[in-house]
């Protein structure tokens, strides 16, 4: 009985503590939302207030009207195109490759794969300038392709998918091949559906990585129209210096898409984190 009481008290204390922490955790986001609905004049004139007395959507409206220095609508579209195509292409290319390494016999399989793994040790900073030159040499700078292609050579996802494939029964392959299906048919009809869980993880991780990347898009696409949401956001501070309401509205626009994605794919994200850290599910 005594132990029971102690148990409930400690649980109540713990939950209270975490609830307070989570509340504080959300405060910066809430402050961003609240400010984005305040008229800029009100902010400049009256300074800080916790809850805005006047609420307006003007900040959002003026935001999407500015198509010169901060074309936010275009940035959103760019980010969406880049993140979606990076995600789909990475899933396709990595799974084709992982399938070959895991299931096909060919000369140099192990050697080639070990070489891939070895390159994961390369610090990415060394490749920055050469990649810039390569993309420029292909005349792809200031295009969205510049933000997609360099990431398709990555190795980590192949490793993840290959590991996953070892859990898919090999009898599937044998049965299909005996039935006269080629490797293409086997891959697309039979193996691909089996890989959906890991492909979701790879796809979502790639989507978020592309959406959040800063340095590369900052370097390779410098025209306002070719920026992504993340790289664009890094240059708006100066533009909206006297319009903090608008500045927070842009920030909201940059945060909401990923937060919405998060609501729907949380399960896969969390599983992905455990997987990439090399643990079993």
């Amino acid at each position: 009985m005594k132990k029971n009481k102690k148990y409930y008290i400690s649980q109540a204390l713990l939950i209270t503590f975490m609830a307070i922490l989570c509340f504080l955790w959300m405060v910066p986001l809430v402050y961003m939302f609240l400010t984005s609905f305040r008229p800029n004049d009100d902010i400049n004139l009256n300074g800080f207030v916790l809850f805005p007395k006047v609420i307006t959507f003007d900040n959002y409206i003026s935001l999407f009207k500015n198509t010169q220095s901060a074309p936010v609508g275009k940035w959103l579209l760019n980010s969406l195109i880049v993140s979606l195509s990076s995600s789909l292409l990475t899933v396709l290319i990595s799974s084709l490759s992982a399938f070959a390494y895991a299931r096909m016999r060919f000369k140099g399989n192990k050697l080639l794969f070990s070489f891939l793994l070895l390159t994961m040790m390369i610090p990415s900073v060394i490749s920055l300038i050469p990649n810039f030159l390569t993309i420029k040499g292909m005349h792809l700078n200031e295009t969205l392709l510049a933000l997609i292609l360099p990431f398709l050579g990555g190795v980590a996802n192949i490793f993840l998918i290959r590991q996953f494939l070892y859990g898919v029964p090999k009898e599937l392959d044998e049965a299909a091949l005996i039935d006269g299906a080629g490797y293409g048919k086997l891959f697309f009809r039979i193996i691909l559906p089996q890989m959906v869980p890991i492909l979701m993880v790879v796809g979502i991780n790639t989507f978020l990585a592309a959406w959040n990347d800063l340095l590369w898009p900052l370097i390779i696409n410098q025209d306002a129209a070719n920026r992504t949401m993340t790289s664009g956001l890094s240059v708006v501070q100066g533009i909206f210096d006297d319009e903090k309401g608008t500045l927070m509205a842009v920030t909201v626009v940059s945060a909401v898409p990923v937060l919405v994605v998060y609501l729907f794919v949380q399960k896969y994200l969390i599983r992905g984190i455990s997987l990439t850290s090399g643990m079993k599910e």
Binding site: P28, T35, L214, S231, M248, T251
Partner: peptide, 14 residues
């Protein structure tokens, strides 16, 4: 999951 740009702008204002 927020980008570094988003986070920095939020904190700059906060």
């Amino acid at each position: 999951i927020l980008s570094v740009s988003t986070v920095v702008l939020i904190f700059t204002w906060l």
